[in-house]
Design a protein around this nucleic acid. Sequence first.
DNA 1: TTATAAACAGACCGGTTGTCCTGTTTTGTT
DNA 2: AACAAAACAGGACAACCGGTCTGTTTATAA
Lengths: 221, 221
Amino acid sequence: MTARPKVRPGKRTNDPEGLRKRVLDVAEASFQARGYHASSLGDLMAAAGVTGGALHHHFPTKKALALAVIEERVAAAVETTWIAPVQAAGSTREGVRSVFEAVAAELEQQGFVRGCPLNNLAHELSLADPDFRTALAGIFSAWRQAIADKVRADQQAGREQDTDPQRFAALAVATYSGAMSMAKTTQDSAVLRDCLNALEQGVSSARAKRRRRVLRQYKAF
Amino acid sequence: MTARPKVRPGKRTNDPEGLRKRVLDVAEASFQARGYHASSLGDLMAAAGVTGGALHHHFPTKKALALAVIEERVAAAVETTWIAPVQAAGSTREGVRSVFEAVAAELEQQGFVRGCPLNNLAHELSLADPDFRTALAGIFSAWRQAIADKVRADQQAGREQDTDPQRFAALAVATYSGAMSMAKTTQDSAVLRDCLNALEQGVSSARAKRRRRVLRQYKAF
DNA sequence: TTATAAACAGACCGGTTGTCCTGTTTTGTT
DNA sequence: AACAAAACAGGACAACCGGTCTGTTTATAA
C-alpha cells in the first residue's frame, strides 16, 4: 500500500517522434477549440498522456509549443484546405468556389463551427508576441500569394484580364476569414454561402452582363 | 516611517458611475490590446486605480465585466464606426467606402493596428461561453442588418437593383473583418485598401465599364 | 438625528499556472 | 562492455489568478 511504483522499470519504449506528434495533435486541437491562453499545459499533458519532463524535453516553453503548432500545423492546414485546391482547380474562381463549398459542407455535416485555425490564433497572438505575429503573417502571405499566382495563371490563359491579382487575393482571403469569423460566432455556416454568392455575383457580374448584352445585340440583328 | 495611512479618512467621495466608467475604459482597452484571458483583474484594478472591493461591487465576476464591455462598448464602437456612417451616407457603396477609408487613415496615422474590437473578442470568446457568443452574435447581426437596410433604401431609390441586400451586407462585413484580421497580423493597413478596391471594382465594374465604354464611343463619333 | 443601504477598502484563500530540477531509463556509439 | 547523450518520469515551487470575506465610509431617506 505504500509507494507503489506506477511504472515498473523495463516497460518504457522511447518514441520521440510519436510523442512529439501526439503533443502537437492535442495542442493544435486545444488551441483551436479553447485558444492559447485558455489551454493549460496540464490539460495538454493529460490529454496527450505525456509527463511534464517529456513535454519540457520537446518543447521547453509554452511559446515554443505554440510556435511549432503555428509553423507545422496551421500552415499545413492552410496549405491543405486552400492552397492545394486552388492550384489544382481549373481557374481561380472555380478554386475559390470549391473551397468555400467544401468548408461549408464540412461544417454543416459536423454541426459545429470551430473557426479558421489561422485567424483564431492570429487574433489572440498577433499582438502578444512578435515571433507569433511574424509566423502568422507569413502564413497569410503564402495564402494570398497562392491565389494571386493562380489569377496570373488565368491571365496568361487569356482570362481575368481586368482583375488585379493581389487585390483579388486579398479580397478572397479577407472574405473567407471574415465569413468564418461570423460563422463561428453565430454557429451557422450559412454566411459562408452568402459571402461566396455575393463575391461571385459582384466579381463576375461585369463579364456576365457584357456577355448577356452581346447576346441580346446579336439577337437584335 | 511606520504604517503611514494611505488614505486618511474623510477624503473619499463616492462616484459609482465614474468608477464604473473608468473600469470599463480600462477593460475595453486591455481586452482589445491583450485579449480577455491575458488581462488579469489585478492589472485592470491597478490601471483603473480601483480596489478589489470596488471592482467586485460593480462587476461580481470577470465574465460580468466582459459582458458589460461587449454590450456597452463593443456594440457602441460598431455603431459609431460603421452603422451611423453607413446610414448617413448617400448610398451603401459610399458609406462602405467612407468607413474603409476612415479606418485605414486612422490606422496609418497612429501607426499601429489593434484590430477590430468585435472580431478580437468574437474569436477568443465565442466558444468559451454561450452568453459571450450570443452577445457577440447580436452585434454582428445588427451590423449586417444596418447595411442590408441601406441597400434596400438604395433599391427604393432605383439603385442597386441586382444586389441582394443580405448577401452584400454579409460580404461587406466579412471583407472588413478579414481585412482587419490581416492588417492586425501584418501590422499594415494597406490590405484594407486592397480589399476595398477589389470589392468596389468587382461589385461596380459592370456599371463603371459600361460608362467608360459609352464615353469612348462618344469620342469615336 | 437615525436607520439603512449603497459604495468602497483591503486583506485573504484555495487553486492553478508555467517552469525548473533531479533522477532514471533507454538508445546509440565505440 | 563501456560510455555519453537523448528521452522520459515526476516532483517542487514561486508567482499569480479570480473570487470571497469582513469591515469601514459615504450617501440617502425617514
